[in-house]
Simulated assay, not measured.
Amino acid sequence: MTSTDLVVQDPAFRRVPAAYGLRWWADGWRSFMQAPLPWLGLAVALLVLLWLLGELPMGGLLSQWLSLPLLAFGVIFAALLRTRMTRAREITPAGVPLEPENEGALSSATQRWTRRIGPLLLASLLVLALGGVIGAVIVMGLGAVFGLGLASFGAFAKVMTPGMGMAAGMGALAGSFMTLMLLVLLALYLFSVAFWFVNTLVALAGVSPWNAVKLSARAGFANIAPITLFTVLLLPISIVAMLPFGIGLLVLFPVLSGASYASYHDVFGDGAAS
Score class of each variant (00 low, 15 high):
72 A>S: 05
170 M>W: 11
148 L>M: 15
139 V>Y: 12
70 L>I: 10
127 V>L: 05
107 S>M: 11
158 K>V: 07
156 F>Y: 06
167 A>D: 12
112 R>G: 04
74 G>Q: 00
93 P>H: 05
85 M>K: 15
99 E>F: 02
168 A>V: 15
115 R>T: 15
66 L>N: 07
171 G>D: 04
136 A>T: 15
145 V>M: 13
107 S>C: 00
81 L>N: 07
64 Q>K: 13
124 S>H: 00
96 V>R: 05
77 F>I: 07
83 T>N: 14
88 A>G: 12
85 M>Y: 13
112 R>W: 05
116 R>W: 00
133 V>F: 02
56 L>W: 03
93 P>R: 11
123 A>V: 02
75 V>D: 01
145 V>L: 09
144 A>N: 09
118 G>V: 07
109 A>N: 04
167 A>T: 14
62 L>R: 10
65 W>D: 00
66 L>I: 03
165 G>E: 04
172 A>S: 11
75 V>C: 04
89 R>V: 15
170 M>H: 07
142 L>A: 11
170 M>P: 12
112 R>S: 01
149 G>M: 09
60 G>H: 03
110 T>A: 14
96 V>F: 10
67 S>P: 00
113 W>M: 05
64 Q>I: 10
131 G>P: 06
66 L>T: 10
63 S>L: 11
121 L>E: 04
169 G>K: 08
82 R>Y: 09
126 L>E: 02
54 G>V: 09
